[in-house]
């Protein structure tokens, strides 16, 4: 096996670019699914007569206007969390790629600098 090919395989496996769109879609879907599931689970379990269902989860309404532990609230929560997941996924992937670019640029710049100094 060609040594340069082996090294490239290692570098690509370690430093492959993350796809921001794919990560945004995946994180958005999973985040929305989790909050829908969590809300739905509380609704299915129910609460004793006269008591509110999921009063603590309902506190998410402080941050997500309109969210409550009801089926329409579960859909709205899934939308909010989906949206936040999309944004977070895109930002995480972009930051991951960006930090690698910055590191590579700094490494190359340092190598060029030392070569110039040596010359």
């Amino acid at each position: 096996m060609d040594k340069s090919n082996q090294d490239k395989a290692i570098l690509m496996a370690s430093f492959a670019k993350m796809d921001p769109v794919a990560l945004a879609v995946a994180l958005g879907c999973i985040s929305g699914f989790i909050i829908f599931l969590a809300t739905g689970l509380l609704l299915i379990q129910g609460a004793p007569e006269g008591q509110e269902i999921g009063p603590h989860l309902a506190l998410l309404g402080i941050y997500l206007p309109g969210y409550e532990v009801t089926w329409p609230g579960a859909v709205l929560g899934a939308f909010y969390f989906g949206l936040m997941g999309v944004i977070a996924g895109f930002v995480i992937a972009t930051l991951w790629n960006l930090t690698h670019y910055i590191y590579i640029v700094l490494t190359v710049a340092r190598a060029v600098w030392w070569k110039m100094m040596a010359d």
């Binding site: 096996m1 340069s4 090919n5 395989a9 492959a16 670019k17 993350m18 796809d19 794919a22």
Partner: peptide, 19 residues
């Protein structure tokens, strides 16, 4: 890495491949 090498990926194929 093993999958890349076992499949005999060419250098050009490896470059730019998303994670």
């Amino acid at each position: 890495i093993k999958a890349y090498l076992r499949d005999g990926a060419r250098n050009d194929d490896l470059l730019g491949m998303p994670m």
